[in-house]
Design a protein around this nucleic acid. Structure first.
Lengths: 267, 267
DNA sequence: TTGCTCCTCACGTCACGTGAGGTGGC
DNA sequence: TTGCTCCTCACGTCACGTGAGGTGGC
């Protein structure tokens, strides 16, 4: 009764197209097509001519469904299908899928942040800078400008960050926060909202709170961010966006906020 | 110089296909196609026969790119395109997009949790129950079993939750936590991992910590979850999964954990 | 004048959907 | 025996890609 993983049992369970269709949500026709193009070959009963799938097909189906959901073509999927069935290989497959999933979610986060920033621009009575924001909406695989962060940090900076953030989740959360603020600044700047505008001042406020929270653990991290801001540009394959402008905009907003406080306007 | 939103300026900026292609990442051919099928009509220069797009086209492009990225067909997109250009309508569009984005991210979270649970099954030396988990991978729009939560809670339960969670983010975070644990239990159960297994015991541990954290604020919430567990089934359009089994599995694991502790095994 | 952009057919492709007409299994 | 599942052509469709051959703008 108990199935030993990897072992070829006597009466290995096999599935009909209909059964697999119910399991996966694919149609019978789609499974026939996948058989024909060699993506998911079925064993054909020589008598009846019917398709049957062995247990190991389920592992391939897992990969097919996953990569299809992420937008890969059937050709790409076929070329990267791992046919191995042993646990350690399966683990590697799953870890790879996790990485792809997290990246995909990162891109959705970027889209979300862009929409949020556009709403703020509307609140400020201005028009969202579509000429710029449209670039963030074509969610092409591996085309997120904000994936620069890991690449830009050198070895020193990375160990600096790992001091501040113990858990991966924490670093991830901070990365989201930082990214959404940078997008806010980018969108407000391109919408010509002045740094003195309440929306920009709110951003400055959040920025300072972020710095305070992070700098409490590690004062050096502040300079690291200034460094990151220097002479960096994150580029789309088709366009260039200057980070300098963004950091200068935030700086101007923060300066305004601080000088207002110094003159007794708080609140 | 300053563009007043909604006002039709004298020399309204217009864009060529090439310019729009660069902005959006679409090809010129694709834009021509969108013009031909009436998805994004262009103004044709009667002299040269060339396509030009007014500023308002950018608002339509935003919607087209967004919904396309979420997997909608061009026909569906065309039927739901909002042609309005005033800020309050734009706001409604953005809010709607946010809702769809959050749902999409929810589904990716479900996939992520399923993969994580499968890795745990591998660690336990067993085979992931693909016959069941494959259902979670076909990310069809609006086909996430775990979207039951809001639906299942009645008015009383909802106000109960709003007492416990002030911010939306907090409730969202809790929802993720709860969901990932339920998926863990579901997968471990279907993989025939006994409730006494270390992996199940770890889950029981996390479950108790969750209850303690939540019950500290609101003792009544515990009973609410028991209620949710009673006689509920969350159904795929094509299949039925019993919640009862999942809750019984967790209960068994927790009982085992508690009884071990009572006998002096603490770990 | 020279690239460069843009134009319109028109055929190709990818990933299936949709009957049409027929056969085998519980 | 009767549904039900499954089979193979084969044509249709959706969302473009890819030349082929030609014209207009800086």
């Amino acid at each position: 009764m108990c199935y030993i993983f990897g072992e070829v049992a006597m009466s290995e369970k096999r599935y009909s197209v209909g059964e697999v269709a119910v399991m996966t949500g694919l149609t019978v026709r789609t499974l026939q097509y996948y058989d024909n193009i060699g993506l998911l070959p079925a064993v054909k009963d020589t008598e009846s001519g019917r398709r049957y799938y062995p247990e190991t097909s389920l592992i391939n189906l897992e990969q097919i469904l996953f990569y299809k959901a992420l937008g890969f073509s059937l050709n790409d999927i076929r070329e990267n299908l791992s046919t191995s069935t042993n646990p350690s290989e399966l683990r590697i497959i799953f870890e790879k899928q996790k990485t792809l999933l997290l990246r995909k979610m990162e891109r959705l986060q970027t889209t979300l942040a862009t929409i949020d920033a556009s709403i703020k621009v509307l609140d400020a009575g201005s028009k969202p800078p579509f000429e710029m924001t449209l670039q963030f909406l074509s969610i092409l695989p591996g085309d997120d400008v904000f994936e620069w962060a890991p690449a830009l940090l050198d070895a020193d900076q990375k160990t600096g960050l790992s001091k501040t953030f113990r858990a991966f989740d924490e670093a991830q959360g901070f990365y989201h926060l930082l990214k959404s603020m940078l997008i806010d600044a980018l969108v407000l700047f391109h919408a010509h909202i002045p740094p003195t505008h309440p929306q920009a001042q709110q951003l400055a406020q959040r920025w300072q709170e972020m710095l305070a929270a992070v700098a409490a653990d590690d004062p050096g991290i502040l300079e690291q961010f200034v460094k990151i801001g220097e002479n960096q540009q994150f580029g789309f394959s088709r366009n260039q966006i200057l980070v300098d402008d963004v950091f200068r905009y935030i700086e101007a907003a923060v300066e305004n906020l601080v000088s207002k406080r110094r003159h007794g306007f708080s609140g």
